[in-house]
Nucleic acid binder design. Structure first.
Length: 518
RNA sequence: GAGGGCGUAGCUCAGUCGGUAGAGCAACGGACUUUUAAUCCGUAGGUCCUGGGUUCGAGUCCCAGCGCUCUCACCA
């Protein structure tokens, strides 16, 4: 037919949502030229547009000329007449394609349309006899052929694996998916706006680290060939941002991906997005106020409803959020005196922990995680943590056993973690050195980093620091029950396992890194 | 890593007691100029996840593996 199936420039088309908003311009034009407005009830089931027209007298509907483009999601063919439902990311609209109206050539083209094809149309916006807002096609354009069949038109994609592997289909065909990711974008934009508005400076730190510090997690290991150096993918943003505090960036943040080589679960993906914020001359109270501000602004950005549905229940984000101390909550939910190490150890043992040789604070924190965290429906700030599980945190001046730290919990999930940052290089070095009793290295946040200590020795201003798990925040704000619903491409095992590919190239690892001659 | 569930057509799913593999949608051919998951007639489409076992006979029962998923553990 001489039609290029792969289209071309068409960027003067209008979004379907905008076109639908032009419905008010449609009028009924009588033969004598008088124009009557269309009744508001048009499109409602009880309203018969055909009957209304005959009551007004002979005439025709007339509406604005429009140009649209999108994907074909439904088709109904009735001989010399084809109805097409066209969708773009702003909405969906019906096309009326009549053989007489578009001509033989375009009608032949329309007969070749498949579900999933991307097409464009020029035509007049009006209503069909049944009151459906419709573009009456005058000229058709072809933009891209879909060679693969789309998902089942009524049920869509149900299979959870396919939804993630074929995320592009999930985005287009599963209701609410595109909207949720658009909300994610709005939330992230709002966070940047909040911070930028308060004078914070956004930076990009390195993602390849010689020492994976700043958190407790197993890192991914990679290798730099030219330097013949093993490197770690970062597990946190913390230590480099603090170096920037030393350098005089007094308000600084990074919103970036971190990588942790650990399990995958409804709340964990190996790569996820963290926000970390540092403010010179602030402390953890400053960060608590900032956290609340960030959340409130983000909620405003996605519609401003403070009560967000979560499964059967509702999360109430109305500020201010509750603030309770760690010990208070431990006493309340675990029914134990937090000052009494022996009693706490007893509870831990009853919960199945081997307490022998473990630091009392580690034992206490085990009880907290087991007995308290699940009950923190929140939003609630848990403040003042046992010092020895917080090696990067400043101690309270009047009580060195307590660290100036808070975590924000919502629905039992840890959403934010903040400290008054430790800026004493000697104490920091000591805490790095002192391995917590009974904790294997990978479970401790303490990792010796001489370069970081040297930075502290040059003087880091006292500061508040804050980390927020963006994916989990988006889960809560969009009602997503798994982290995979808020990550566009969550980690999946590659599809081609088991059979085919291994055999044809022998050692596949070797073939990826061709050995160059010496 | 442990336990449960699932794996059948491109998609969504049935498949009885172990007895020749099914439907809807999508595709293909035909009818239809106001349809709404259009309708009607017809055609084609299968490594029943893989491998073994029991049996005269396995989609179905048993074992192992692979993949997905849920719960738990580690972790944020």
């Amino acid at each position: 037919m001489g039609i290029d199936p792969w289209g071309g420039r068409f960027d003067d088309r209008r979004p379907i949502g905008e076109i639908r908003a032009q419905a008010g311009q449609i009028v009924y034009r009588l033969e004598d030229g008088t124009e009557l407005p269309i009744p508001d009830q048009v499109g409602q089931e009880e309203f018969d547009l055909r009957q209304w027209k005959s009551e007004q007298g002979k005439g025709q509907l007339a509406g604005p000329q429009v140009r649209a483009a999108g994907r074909i999601v439904l088709q109904r063919r009735t001989g010399k007449l084809i109805f097409v439902n066209l969708r773009d990311w702003t909405g969906e609209i019906q096309l009326f394609i009549g053989k007489k109206q578009v001509g033989d050539a375009d009608f032949e083209l329309a007969k070749l349309f498949d579900l999933g094809d991307l097409i464009g149309v020029d035509g007049m916006l009006a209503y069909t006899n049944t009151g459906e807002l419709t573009i009456f096609a005058e000229k058709l354009h072809f933009h891209a052929k879909s060679l693969q069949p789309p998902p089942e038109k009524h049920h869509g994609l149900h299979d959870a694996e396919l939804r993630q592997r074929l995320r592009y289909l999930d985005l287009f065909y599963t209701e609410g998916v595109l909207e949720r990711f658009q909300k994610r974008t709005k939330i992230v934009q709002s966070i940047r706006r909040t911070l930028d508005g308060q004078g914070y400076c956004e930076v990009e730190g390195p993602t390849l680290h010689a020492i994976a510090g700043g958190a407790a997690a197993r890192p991914f290991i990679t290798h730099h060939n030219a330097l013949d150096l093993d490197l770690f993918m970062r597990i946190a943003l913390e230590l480099h941002l603090k170096r920037l505090l030393v350098g005089g960036m007094e308000r600084v943040y990074e919103l970036g991906r971190v990588y942790r080589n650990e399990g995958i679960s409804p709340r964990h993906n190996p790569e996820f997005t963290m926000l970390e914020v540092y403010q010179a001359y602030g402390d953890y109270q400053t960060m608590m106020d900032l956290t609340e501000r960030i959340l409130v602004d983000a909620i405003e950005a996605i519609g401003g409803n403070y009560r967000i549905p979560w499964g059967e229940s509702t999360i109430d984000f109305t500020p201010p959020f509750a603030r309770r101390t760690y010990d208070e909550l431990l006493a309340e939910h675990a029914d134990v005196d937090p000052e009494d190490d022996v009693a706490v150890a007893k509870v831990a043992a009853a919960l199945g922990m081997d307490t022998a040789g473990k630091h009392p604070d580690v034992v206490k924190n085990f009880v907290f995680e087991e007995q308290v965290e699940d009950k923190l429906i929140g939003p609630i700030f848990v403040i003042d943590y046992p010092a020895s599980i917080c090696p990067l945190t400043r101690r309270k001046q009047d009580n060195p056993a307590i660290a100036e730290r808070f975590e924000l919990f919502i629905e039992g999930m840890e959403i934010a973690n903040a400290y008054t940052e430790l800026n004493d290089p000697d104490l920091q070095a000591e805490l790095f050195r002192t391995q917590l009793a009974g904790l294997p290295e990978e479970e401790s946040m303490a990792k010796m980093d001489h370069d970081f200590i040297r930075a502290l020795q040059h003087g880091m201003p006292p500061a508040g620091g804050l980390g927020i798990g963006i994916d989990r925040l988006v889960m809560l704000l969009t009602g997503a029950r798994t982290i995979r619903e808020v990550i566009l491409f969550p980690l999946l095992r590659p599809e081609s396992t088991g059979r085919a590919p291994a055999s044809d190239s022998g050692g596949s690892a070797a073939s990826e890194e061709p050995t160059s001659p010496p």
